[in-house]
Design a protein around this nucleic acid. Structure first.
Lengths: 221, 221
DNA sequence: GATTGCGTAGGCAATTCTGCCTATGAGCTT
DNA sequence: AAGCTCATAGGCAGAATTGCCTACGCAATC
């Protein structure tokens, strides 16, 4: 939801950074939470929070890269900006390949960091919108019964043969029953035509296969 | 086409690299072309070649990063593996953000480079397939006349109201004429139902907006 | 000047879709 | 046992789609 304020999570083992960074970021209007280590962050992370992670590369217990790996696809909604004291090219490339937003070296101007965080938030907002859009679609599809979903699958997989007669033959039941299911499907999905159904399902499949939300779809069968 | 062998383009100002790299890569079965500078590569680049660029970061006339920038979206079909002697984190991050496949530091094992090149080819193949798929779809849509495309747009934009009567009213012409156009549209696109049309157009729009091929589509209007 | 392609439009008949009714049996919950 | 959802299936009437025909005017092309 866009009414949840976007937070900056600062994870750094260096007390000086934990002191100065939040100060600068709060002055810029960000809401900030601070953690002294990656495990400390993970301890309070319930998988639903979103926001920008500003994270030190090297830390004793768990490095920034390890945290990134640990978060996996959830990191989509936790864009990371790495901060490195002595990190090398190898680490920075790994971080970027792992989907980091950016990777900046100490020392840095706080304005530069702010820029990166704002870019991260822009991306995050996009992803959250996409996720919500998918969730809404999914919700509607979830109201369908198994049989209805089966018919949707069939229609989407093979939109060239969508007369009730053909579908009925395919499923071995009366075309009249297909008509009945069709009506329920359109009603539940709040649409008005089979064409719209195909459009909706196509978008749902494409959008969701690119996010980590792909599951329980009317399957390709 | 996948029958075009995938080439490795080595761009490096260092004669030693221009000597050793191709040797190693050819031994691994790659087809290799060598260039001593970015401009030299660009001189023979006609915008259609695809392949993996193995490129030095620092070069006198034009740096690897400048080449990357210069290629712009065409770089999609020229995945780049950077090689850096003295490059720092800043450059590597810029390269990665610019869409580079990878960024490795000298010295490196040739096996490591080969791995990266193979990953690049895998990605490239995917992108080429996508491009081709889009091109095929586009070709079919291009056969439509202006009026036909207008009707397609209308149907795709508003699949809830697709009866010929409604479209006719919207365009201010007879529903009968819409029927006629519809028939031509289905025929030209080699499909059999309006539902299939919506699916096709939806996929086309989504697929192509993510590539640089988006243009001349049945527009959103 | 004839041909071709395009947009326009109508007729007619077969098929299909849609909406509104009823109805039965299976399976589950209360 | 009663009530619920779901899948099944039919009737019927109005609306829409589809395929196949003809036709005219306009513009470009040969």
């Amino acid at each position: 939801m866009s009414d949840t304020p976007l937070k900056v999570y600062v994870v750094d083992d260096d007390p000086a950074m934990r002191n100065s960074l939040p100060r600068a970021l709060r002055k810029r209007g960000f809401e900030v939470e601070v953690f002294a280590s990656a495990p400390e962050f993970l301890a309070q992370y319930d998988g639903t929070q979103t926001g920008c992670l500003v994270i030190d590369l090297r830390m004793p217990e768990m490095s920034g890269l390890e945290l990134q790996e640990h978060l996996g696809s959830a990191a989509q909604f936790l864009p990371m900006v790495f901060i490195s004291g002595h990190g090398g090219v190898r680490e920075s490339v790994q971080a970027m390949k792992g989907g980091a937003m950016d990777f900046i070296e100490k020392p840095f101007r706080s304005a530069a960091l702010v820029e990166r965080i704002e870019a991260a938030f822009a991306l995050l907002r996009e992803r959250l919108e996409m996720r919500e859009k998918c969730a809404e679609l999914r919700q509607r599809f979830d109201r369908l019964t198994a049989r209805e979903a089966e018919i949707v699958s069939r229609i989407v997989a093979c939109p060239a043969e969508i007369s009730s007669k053909e579908i009925g033959r395919h499923l071995g039941i009366s075309p009249r029953t297909i008509d009945h299911h069709r009506a329920r499907i359109l009603e539940k999905l709040e649409i008005r035509s089979t064409a719209e159904l195909v459009g909706l399902a196509t978008r749902l499949r494409i959008d969701c296969e690119s996010s980590n939300l792909a599951s329980g779809l009317p399957s390709q069968e």
